[in-house]
């Protein structure tokens, strides 16, 4: 079997690997790079537990072959804390009680992050839409939506302060 020479950036770090081209991006992240925050639920694009940000867009890493990420930039849940400080979404999820078993949480937070990166004052509908590809079996979603609202309002206040 011919290995594939894969070069990508993961959470800001350049990664160079020779991999079996049949590996999914999910497998490379979890089993080779040991970034186990990305979860596998259904393995077929239904649950969003494996969501990562690929070149600024949310994708299911169980549906992406590792070579497809060649030359691209990947962000996983491990990559969003800055200098040891949790991202405002991570903090808000904890405060709002939006994490129960936690299996869906990494995917949910990354989905919300893509939303807030483009739109820091989202409506409830926009929040629901942004997490519509992510299934949560525990929370009933209400607290997840609240958490995203909390994070959004903090970002808006902070942006306001920066502009003042």
């Amino acid at each position: 079997m011919a290995e594939f020479h894969l070069e990508m950036k993961v959470n800001g770090k350049p990664i160079v690997l020779d991999v079996d081209p049949g590996l999914r991006l999910l497998d490379v992240l979890r089993d080779i790079l040991h970034l186990t925050g990305t979860k596998e639920g259904c393995g077929e694009g239904e649950c969003g537990a494996c969501s990562v940000i690929l070149n600024g867009k949310l994708v299911d890493s169980c549906l992406v072959l590792a070579p497809q990420a060649n030359g691209q930039e990947v962000i996983t849940i491990e990559g969003i804390a800055q200098n040891g400080e949790l991202d405002s979404l991570q903090k808000a999820f904890l405060e709002a009680g939006a994490v129960q078993c936690g299996y869906c949480t990494p995917g949910m937070i990354l989905a919300a992050k893509v939303l807030l990166d483009h739109n820091s004052t989202p409506s409830r509908l926009e929040i629901s839409k942004s997490i519509s590809g992510n299934i949560c079996r525990c929370t009933g979603y209400t607290k997840i939506i609240q958490a995203v609202e909390i994070a959004a309002s903090r970002i808006a206040t902070k942006e306001g302060a920066d502009h003042a």
Binding site: L63, S130, S132
Partner: peptide, 9 residues
């Protein structure tokens, strides 16, 4: 189509 993740890919 599908979910946001599917539409992006």
């Amino acid at each position: 189509v599908g979910s946001p993740q599917i539409r992006n890919a």
